[in-house]
Design a protein around this nucleic acid. Structure first.
Lengths: 247, 247
DNA sequence: AACAGCCAAATGTTCGAAATTCCAGCGCCT
DNA sequence: AGGCGCTGGAATTTCGAACATTTGGCTGTT
């Protein structure tokens, strides 16, 4: 184990503050923290094994990322979820991602095409989590899914647009993972999603911007609908029976 | 004692951290801090009269806002400016603002129209700074200008889109104020800008989305060109004669 | 029983100092 | 001369404790 410059460097050059920022961010997006949950310093300090100073730094950044809310003298809380925000988020994400995809299709080179195919392959080979508890499987799939979607738009030469797309993608992922606690997808749905991934990759590499953005938009639209259905189901559950997943 | 709920509340509920965040943010956008300049804690602590803890908090947020850069164990620096970023920024800003304007035109009510007219009036009555040193005049004009542009898109019902527009507007303002140190505008240019403001307000209230977005895009395009010209002039100055404003 | 006011515990905020890391200058070796 | 490693100083990072604010409960009154 000694290999890598990169990893060791990261550890060195990195401070506790940014490390905790990354970990908290991951956990927020993965849904390990309940929306609205208070983020108490004592509790966080114990779970993450760091002092308060780095935590404040990390949480401050997350406030600007809009993943965490802050109220003076009352502490930090996990940003809430809402249907209105979900739709807003997704409309904007669709718009910006399609814009980025068009630019990417205009400018992409051979390496970009190769990366798309590679990412698609990794995604298709990634096993889907069969039960709720399989965090590792779920994390792995999410990472590959994210990477595939990023590969599509990565040739777009607007860093700011990519940044926004990434931020929106993270927020959407939080909705998805918060809501789809049970693998509630039918085989038919899964098949359709896989087909959309293949189709968007194909159209993208064929430089058919209209078709690619069309499929991507449909793909996002489908995802939103699934999330929205699950969200409403969960809201009903919460209203009738108290089923706190955590806390 | 106890009367004013609102005002007292604001002061109370606010922490040093968020207060410093606002002040730093204002100063960054206003160009009082040079791009690339190191932000040393001792120096900041002295100028702003606060300890290191609130400063770290504020700077962390500004990193996520992309107004400040951070390198582990090497501290914080003011985010640099570049022509490439300027064009990227403005292309995206134009796109998103026009999108928001369209939505706003679809949904705006009487109060929205009234606010646009009020903001336009305040902007037209605001004196322009005649010399470099007039910070107060400059701040006042910028605030009214900002408010006018915000009023146009404020009826858009996408909080996230508005947030992005605001962030991009702040970044662009930083370019403008960093670069236009001398009031280098010809009377002709000023007149054209005033005319654009009037025209976009008029078209917006007339619910002519095509015309309004057209004018807004031209307005932004014109601004970019002015900023770009000044930026290049300043770059030449810096290249030929060493004129470090600070540091 | 309901409610205002107050007290104490918990929590968040800020400071000062210790530990760690970077950087520039200097001497030394090739 | 040029490169390498060391070292002293400066800056950043982190912690622990002091300070301030909120919150929930208790008491006493109506």
């Amino acid at each position: 184990m000694s290999l890598p410059h990169a990893a060791a460097r990261e550890d060195d050059a990195s401070t506790l503050g940014v490390e905790i920022y990354s970990r908290l961010r991951r956990d927020l997006i993965a849904g390990h923290l309940q929306p609205g949950e208070r983020l108490r310093f004592r509790q966080l300090s114990a779970s993450y094994g760091v002092g308060i100073a780095p935590l404040r730094e990390a949480l401050s950044r997350l406030v600007s990322d809009q993943l965490v809310r802050f109220e003076g003298h009352r502490g930090y809380t996990v940003a809430p979820l809402s249907m209105a925000d979900l739709y807003d988020l997704c409309a904007l994400r669709t718009d910006l991602s399609c814009k980025a995809l068009r630019q990417s299709i205009e400018r992409g080179d051979d390496d970009w095409e190769a990366e798309i195919l590679a990412a698609l392959h990794r995604l298709e080979r990634s096993p889907l989590p069969q039960s709720v508890g399989e965090r590792k499987v779920s994390d792995e799939w999410e990472q590959r899914h994210e990477r595939f979607h990023f590969s599509l738009i990565s040739a777009c030469d607007s860093p700011r647009l990519l940044h926004f797309c990434g931020a929106l993608s993270d927020h959407f992922q939080r909705y998805r993972r918060a809501v789809i606690v049970v693998t509630s997808a039918s085989e038919e749905l899964l098949q359709r999603v896989r087909e959309q991934h293949r189709a968007v990759a194909e159209a993208t590499i064929a430089r058919d911007a209209d078709r690619a953005t069309q499929i991507l938009a449909e793909h996002f639209q489908g995802s939103v609908e699934v999330v929205a259905r699950n969200y409403e189901a969960i809201s009903r559950d919460l209203a009738s029976g108290p089923v706190p997943v955590r806390g």
